[in-house]
């Protein structure tokens, strides 16, 4: 996050002017304050309250203490949803990050020309409306008539059932995640552009290889950008909803029952608003913890290297 510079108020001599400016400032920010109170703070707090209640929309909420939380940890579907989401975090996020960084580093290589159109190619999947992307991937991943298995067939591999297979459904989702990582690539490219050319020149004089340069110069300097993109991905995985909702409805055998999908089901299919709110709060706390860990982890690495 951007570190903000502390403003020196003392430089303002005229306190009336200062007060006028402060008043104006708050007036300008007022829409956000109202929006924050009404559409963010109030929902967060009431969500916390509901998470301790039985609430089915029609009847008034009934306070039940920590019952929802206790029930959640005995709920097999919830545990499965947590595992699936963890799978995406532990495998999907790193794989996607690796791919995005690798592509960006190669795209950024000064020695390669004519890569402009490729940036566009990697970026445009992010523009495809999620729903259309899902419809598309249902077809791309078809066991018999799908593009992926057709291509695998060309090299003599019999592709799996992908979305229809409990083992291969999540990898199919990861492939989709990678396909839509164009935003991250753009951000990595911008981050790479900020790395001073002179560092590479110096390294080249020392005879460092491209690989060596990447490991010892590019990656350490790219860390803040990696952090940003990973945080974005982690939040994205928690919110991963439209894809399983449209493509698999959580199946087969709950292999793609992800956190947000189960939350949605509890809220809008079973009308357990309190139960779903408890899920939302666990998500908030865990997401926050993961982001803190990411910060610590990447910061720690940084200080080690420099």
């Amino acid at each position: 996050m951007k570190k903000t510079v502390k403003t020196e108020f003392s430089e303002y001599k005229n306190s009336r002017m200062r007060r006028a400016e402060a008043k104006n400032g708050i007036l300008f920010v007022l829409p956000w304050i109202i929006g924050f109170l009404g559409f963010t703070l109030y929902p967060i707090l009431s969500s916390l309250y509901y998470s301790f209640c039985d609430y089915s929309v029609i009847k008034e909420p009934v306070f039940t203490g920590v019952k929802n939380y206790v029930t959640l940890f005995h709920d097999q579907t919830f545990i499965k949803a947590c595992k699936n989401t963890a799978y995406m975090m532990l495998i999907g996020v790193p794989v996607t990050t690796f791919f995005a960084v690798a592509v960006s580093v190669i795209l950024n290589s000064k020695k390669l020309r004519h890569t402009g159109w490729m940036r566009v190619v990697f970026f445009i999947p992010t523009l495809v409306p999620t729903v259309v992307a899902c419809l598309l991937w249902i077809w791309v991943m078809q066991p018999e008539t799908g593009v992926v298995n057709t291509l695998l067939g060309y090299i003599g591999v019999k592709g799996p059932g992908w979305l229809a297979s409990p083992t291969w459904a999540k990898p199919a989702f990861i492939m989709m995640m990678i396909w839509t990582c164009g935003n991250a690539i753009i951000i990595y490219l911008a981050g790479l552009q900020d790395i001073s050319e002179s560092l590479y020149e110096a390294a080249e004089i020392d005879g460092a290889s491209f690989f060596r340069e990447t490991i010892s110069i590019t990656l350490p300097l790219l860390k803040p950008t990696i952090l940003y993109n990973m945080v974005t991905l982690v939040i994205g995985v928690f919110q991963w909803f439209a894809e399983p909702y449209i493509m698999t409805q959580g199946g087969p055998n709950n292999a793609t029952m992800f956190y947000s999908l189960y939350l949605y089901q509890n809220a809008f299919t079973y009308f357990k608003m309190g139960y779903a709110s408890a899920q939302a709060w666990i998500m908030l706390v865990v997401a926050f913890a993961i982001i803190l860990i990411l910060f610590k982890f990447l910061k720690f690495g940084e200080s080690n290297n420099s």
Binding site: Q142, P143, E144, P160
Partner: peptide
């Protein structure tokens, strides 16, 4: 069941030629 996925999956619906 993992093996016969290709049979049962299709596009999962009754109204498709597969």
């Amino acid at each position: 069941p993992e093996k016969i996925n290709a049979f049962t999956s299709g596009l999962g619906q009754m109204f498709s030629p597969d």
